[in-house]
Design a protein around this nucleic acid. Sequence first.
DNA 1: ATAGGGTTAG
Length: 570
Amino acid sequence: MCALRVPVSHCTMSIAIKCCCQLYRTNDAFALLGFCFRRSIVPDVFIFNALLDGLVHEDRILEAEMFFKKLIKELFKQMCALRVPVSHCTMSIAIKCCCQLYRTNDAFALLGFCFRRSIVPDVFIFNALLDGLVHEDRILEAEMFFKKLIKGKLCEPDVVTYNTMIKGALLMEEKGCKPNVVTYSTIIDSLCKDKMIDDAFKLLKEMVFQKGISPNVITYNSLIDGLCNLGRWDEASKMLQEMVDVGISPDVQTFNILVDAFCKEGKVDEAENAIDIMLERGIVPDMVTYNALIDGYCLRGEMSKAKIIFDSMVFRGLVPDIFTYSSLLNGYCKSLKIDEAMDLFNEITRKGLKQDVVTYNTMIQGLFRVGHCGAARRLFDEMHKKGLKPNECTYRVILEGLCNNHQIEEALSMFHLMGDSKLNFDIFMYNILIDGAGKCGKLDIARLLFEDITKMECDFPPNNVTYCVILQGYLKNQYYDDVEILLHEMDGRRYSLDATTLSLFLDQIAAGLLDKTLLELIGKLVPKELVERKTACFVPCWGWCQLRAPAVNCISFCFWICTCTLLHII
DNA sequence: ATAGGGTTAG
């Protein structure tokens, strides 16, 4: 193969090694492993397993044991010597390998290696470790590790994590150690937080009907919170009713969940209603209740009402905390009352409360909004001096602020600085910059950034927003060459157009800048749920269409309706 | 032992 220049891939080696092992020629397989290293082919868990399996087949158990112990050390030594980079992927494979071989302790040692090498473990690595513990019947340790992951926000658990934990709970029971309402509530709560509410209900059913364990007020609160966060209001109120029916009284936290959910939806009246019910039931609103309500008014820019709630809170003897001030600060900033915001910002320190990264982020954003870029930057420096570490949100706010104030070059240099400091920059940051560049008329920059993330091996592929903002950049700058390709790519990725992008398309088609044959393709990119909405709006919509673009025929009728709905024209 | 407040692109 080498003589014929047939490329020898990882797959080839994997097959060859497996083949040798099964033919009782493990020594030859080890020779091939050496070949892998020389060729910089990184062996994976299947290759290691084949080799170990081969040794075991040949009854070379001691060697297998030794091989395994050496494996990790040797592997890294060889890899380092050959300058094969020890990547995140290598560690992931090695850890998984250990776990599957009932060597979870070794796997945890490797986790330490990760931290020392500043390789950030991800959900796959944590899942492997959890699974390893469960496999070794170390369920309690698994449960502790799981809680540590959640509390320390070390990773976002995924469906595999939960399946492992559920499997663990079942295994626990088999061993005669029964999981109780706390075990189940812990898992249910994490499922709810991750919007996996249907799985949470599946687990609830299992808990109630198969294990005979009754949910408590905490279980209900978690479920109600999960439903509210998904906007599934009917089910949330059903749960609330069910809770009362089975004789569990909603407590202050239950109401706080409801108040907070109403406020976030902008339904402050309903939140006030909930507080009235609360008072009728003799439940005393606490700090969290007031903060939620204040935040609700601030989000709507109703600062005088927010202030009234603030006063009544103080009247009731509650001392406003950093959350209270932060909401008010956000409210003033959002309504562009920058002097009031600044006064409040200074008041925080006077009241003996500590400024944190959130209050700084809010204030910096506010200053950028009114164009006070210098003041915003000074605050950013001040934050540094105080030893407060800027987070991803800080950088987003600054990038967006600079872009909106036409300082795209500064934004770019800040972005590169972030890259050097190994801060996590993600698709959000790219979207902000692409959008900003497009708005500043720097389409070349927008295109370069877009190319950056569409070329192979980028950690984060462009998302729906990326496509929308790059398209907006193209349309605003009347550059149409790639528009159709981009739309096709969006279709292939099942992405959809948002209201802003749609309206830009509409306007330019109506103005004759873009060919109307694009409409069919655009129509495909309108979210389906909108197509099904309100047939009653057909008539006025059609009239509006003809008024704005008489040339449009009915191929894209649905598209037009959706556009109108999106733009709140009907 | 398990649950509830503040900042975040278009």
